[in-house]
Amino acid sequence: MGEVDRDEVTTLAAATTGTDPQAGLAAVASLRALVDVLESLQVGNARASGWTWKMIAERLGVSKQAVHQKYGGRPPIRRGG
């Protein structure tokens, strides 16, 4: 990461921990979307390894219906690459 980029990040850090709602809310929304993708990957992996919806739901701290509604019905994302 270049010098300029580091400066930009520092400024943004100030903006986010400061009072600029624009940057703060956008950062939180991005983080939530990122977590969503990681959850999707982990659930797909768990299903491919034979975990039941109930086991997955317990680890995620949600109901088994919730996780089934969100991820059921489609083949799990396979490990590849």
Binding site: V9, L12, R78
Partner: peptide, 26 residues
């Protein structure tokens, strides 16, 4: 940049995810 401000390195997260699951899966 926004996630960097929260202390999250997106590039590092992607690298880790690709190592575990492969790029097509990510």
């Amino acid at each position: 940049g926004l996630l960097g401000s929260l202390g999250v390195d997106v590039a590092a997260v992607r690298r880790a995810a690709e190592e575990n699951f492969g790029r097509p899966a990510v």
